[in-house]
Design a binder for these strands. Structure first.
Lengths: 170, 170
DNA sequence: GCAAACAATATGAAATTTCATATAACTGGG
DNA sequence: CCCAGTTATATGAAATTTCATATTGTTTGC
């Protein structure tokens, strides 16, 4: 075990390793439910707000658009989602849950919440309370920097150029 | 931005998203240096301790062994590493840095430290001080649980009751 | 109301990754 | 010593992922 070197305390390694190991158990559960991890991510996004663009799903699932297109192909073939048109913009494809997809998605989201509670229970209560706000703040900073690469630290959330998930707001 | 739904506050999403976005900039830098991300991970591990088993490199780089074997093939072909024997165990292949590999590795590790400092500077000082110990503690817990899946984190003894439980062994 | 620029999705082909398994070497029991 | 069980690495074949680009639709500037 690498105990003392560069890697074991490198922030980007810790983030990747924690993400990987924390997800491993739940991802195994997802596969037992008969779907793969990227498909689970799509289902979770669609439970949050049905009818999402392929590009937005790809962004949220941390993957490239052309890959998401093919994942939606497979999910559609298996009856979990269906493609629909966007009345506002003919280029867009809105992905919707089918009834079967919604049943599976809601079950898995419930399982995910239970698993999340277990992971948090493995931490000291003080750390458990801090970790989410800390990660949220860091994510917001990182996304703000990516949106305006020149200046560090934008506070105004001006990435509003990013379209919302259609239909999410009601 | 992702406002109020399940995904945007889900711990496993936050971990994956922060890891992905925090790494994106540095990974772009790595690619400009002419290598890919898994190769960078191998170099970083070998700077920490030269002469590492393929299986151990795979574990540290969060990937499967057969993939690591092929990554080492490519790095060896490009003169970054060489394979050597282990005097203690003839099954093992020890991967060593070449001189060229070490030059590149040491440069990139220095760059990684600088980038890490930038990421930490984007956080409040209090959070910056907490994040590494917090992630280290969580990683240690997760690895301990993976090693002894019935015991460590759980006190309630009810795990066997529900085979569908998301966290318990799957 | 057209042309250029931009945006969303799809797709062929190449490269990578996974899965199952082969091969070789170590371990411990008889 | 030999056997069965286990560990470390490698590899063929299938599946997935990436890259570049095609296609279609929208927006902007004139």
């Amino acid at each position: 075990m690498a105990q003392k070197g560069f890697v074991s305390s490198y922030l980007l390694y810790l983030l990747a390793a924690v993400s990987d190991r924390a997800s491993a158990q739940f991802h195994a559960h997802v596969r037992k439910a008969g779907i793969r991890v990227p498909e689970w991510r799509v289902l979770a996004c669609l439970v949050d707000g049905d009818g999402a663009m392929i590009t937005e799903l790809a962004r949220l699932a941390l993957m490239e658009q052309s890959r998401m297109t093919r994942i939606i192909d497979q999910m559609e073939a298996r009856g979990l989602v269906r493609r629909g048109a966007d009345a506002q913009d003919g280029r867009r494809v809105l992905v919707h849950l089918t009834d079967a997809g919604r049943v599976l998605a809601e079950r898995l989201v419930a399982d995910a919440r239970a698993h999340e509670a277990e992971v948090l229970a493995a931490l000291d209560p003080a750390d458990a309370a801090r970790i989410r706000p800390l990660l949220s703040a860091l994510l917001a900073r990182l996304e703000a920097e990516a949106a305006s690469p020149g200046g560090a630290g934008r506070r105004d959330g001006a990435a509003a150029a990013t379209p919302e998930m259609p239909g999410a707001g009601g």
